[in-house]
Design a binder for these strands. Structure first.
Length: 316
DNA sequence: GTCTTGCATGATTATGGGTC
DNA sequence: GACCCATAATCATGCAAGAC
């Protein structure tokens, strides 16, 4: 297989007429048979809580749809891993598949790392599927996995030694960003702080609300987003996003920031019986100081670790 | 008395600043 | 340059307090 084929064709990275395929939406048909949402809105309508629970009978069908979407979300990172070996001057040069620098990405990582990845993906997934703040047009143009430099270093080490360290943590910046695009212009920005735990952690919830309270009105990741989208060129959709994000970088008004905490957990509250969620249904968490519209999306699943292993194709 | 919850702390890796 | 310390990040674990 030629290097060009490996970079741009079906086996690992999907090809379009223009190059690297964009996400093109995160909706799945079997969603309603798997997850159900229950929304509570505060009296001043500044705070919403969305409690999402799963119907186990619909899980298998939904995960079958979800798995390729998650893999696609990581395609850009794979593309980046392989790109450094690309030689534009010699596109016909043969590539030895045994030397694939993206081999093992990301399934060889520690389960803790994969839970972090899953949490980030799932925050974008719920943004597009569960209409935070009643807005149905949120779009996640790309995920930011390619900037997890530490993970790439560990992967390179694994290729050489066959040994993978335990959890890789600590990617800085925003977990996930969604936007509403109208007439080529970004009018709404959704900052998503994602947490994912196999059980439950009140500390995670507290830290998420503290972090989402930052006062910046536009994402600190704007330059990275544009840089990332360049990889999809030539692609008309990527061009639209790049133009819109550059306008947003210069803009002082004409857009609104919304805050969202996405909490995926493997436990439901047991006591007292009146308690149905870990995060308050009525009012923002005490750590939230953003002063903006806030939505907490709490996703209560079963066997979170098994789910993460399945969607990442990780052996138990 | 048992189970559950929430807080504090630890594990792990990387980065940056200060001091010698 | 080497070393130390603080900070950042995610998630697990241990334990005291509370609920039933």
């Amino acid at each position: 297989m030629s290097l060009h084929e490996l970079l741009y064709t079906g086996k690992f990275v999907r090809e379009t007429a223009w190059g690297l395929d964009m996400l093109n939406g995160l909706k799945i048909e079997s969603l309603s048979s798997w997850l159900s949402a229950d929304i509570a809105v505060s009296s001043d309508e500044q705070y919403r809580h969305n409690l999402i629970k799963e119907n186990l009978s619909g899980r298998a069908g939904a995960l079958a749809e979800l798995k390729p979407l998650i893999q696609k979300a990581h395609d850009d990172a794979r593309f980046r891993l392989r790109k450094f070996l690309r030689d534009d001057l010699d596109p016909l040069k043969e590539w030895d598949e045994d030397d694939d620098p993206a081999e093992g990405y990301p399934e060889v990582f520690d389960l803790t790392t994969l839970k972090g990845y899953f949490g980030e993906f799932f925050s974008g997934f719920v943004a597009e599927n569960f209409a935070p703040f009643g807005e149905r047009n949120w779009r996640v143009p790309v995920f930011l996995f390619r900037f997890h430099e530490t993970a790439f270093d560990q992967l390179a080490m694994w290729h050489q030694t066959g040994q993978m360290n335990t959890a890789i943590v600590g990617r800085t910046g925003d977990d996930c960003l969604a936007f509403v695009l109208e007439n080529g212009k970004i009018v709404k920005i959704l900052f998503l702080e994602a947490k994912c735990t196999a059980s439950h952690s009140s500390q995670m919830i507290a830290e998420a609300h503290k972090k989402i309270s930052n006062q910046n009105q536009t994402p600190v990741e704007l330059m990275r987003l544009v840089d990332l989208l360049q990889a999809y060129r030539p692609n008309p959709e990527a061009d639209v996003w790049i133009t819109a994000l550059r306008q947003l970088y210069r803009a002082k008004e004409g857009f609104e920031r919304f805050d969202c905490v996405s909490y995926v957990c493997g436990q439901s509250p047991q006591k007292p019986r009146s308690k149905v969620s870990w995060i308050s249904r009525a009012a923002p968490h005490q750590n939230y100081r953003g002063g903006r519209k806030l939505e907490a999306i709490e996703v209560q699943l079963s066997d979170v670790e098994d789910l993460v292993r399945f969607v990442y194709g990780k052996e138990a």
